[in-house]
């Protein structure tokens, strides 16, 4: 039905006047609009990647794992984030803290393995919300695209971990 109506409309031809057939007025009008934008309005585009748009304070980018004020890993492998993750993309393996890694962890348990499958993550931030230890945050880093290797999307603990209070050095 709708298609028929549109077809009818398209088939309609109008008789063009002499001025129309000259084309000049239309060209002048078009050039005027172009020049107006070109000379008198500010450009909206950003020269990415040299220039970047500011992001919102609660932007949810890639995950970062935090350390506490003494530089120890906050995460204690409680699995709350894994439990709350709707995409089921977090994989944790807990282990006992023993020997020389003691200084690195405030509790008896730590995450020996902590992985996030970034391709499945929906960046909902539930993990951040669930974490009782304020260990995992979704921060401002968003340049996640890569072109050669999908295994890079398995984010490991090492890649997420903040180093001595400084933000993580991002890969990619």
């Amino acid at each position: 039905m709708a298609i028929n109506v549109r077809a009818k409309y398209l088939n309609k031809t109008e008789e063009m006047s002499f001025i129309d057939r000259l084309y000049l007025p239309a060209i002048v009008k078009g050039m005027f609009i172009t020049m107006k934008h070109f000379l008198f309005t500010k450009a909206y585009t950003v020269e990415y990647p040299e220039e970047r748009k500011p992001i919102a304070p609660r932007f949810r980018g890639r995950h970062v794992m935090k350390r506490d004020e003494m530089g120890r890993e906050r995460c204690t492998a409680c699995y709350c984030c894994q439990y709350s993750c709707p995409a089921e993309c977090i994989n944790i393996e807990a282990a006992e803290v023993t020997g020389d890694i003691r200084n690195n962890h405030p509790e008896d348990k730590y995450a020996r393995v902590f992985e996030i499958e970034l391709l499945r993550c929906i960046f909902c931030g539930f993990c951040q919300e669930a974490c009782p230890k304020a260990a995992i945050y979704l921060e401002e880093f968003y340049e996640l695209a890569d072109y050669d290797d999908r295994s890079k999307y398995l984010l490991t603990k090492k890649e997420m971990m903040e180093t001595e209070g400084k933000p993580v050095k991002y890969r990619v």
Partner: peptide
Amino acid sequence: LDCPVCDQA
């Protein structure tokens, strides 16, 4: 407040 570490949780 050990629940995150505790196996009984």
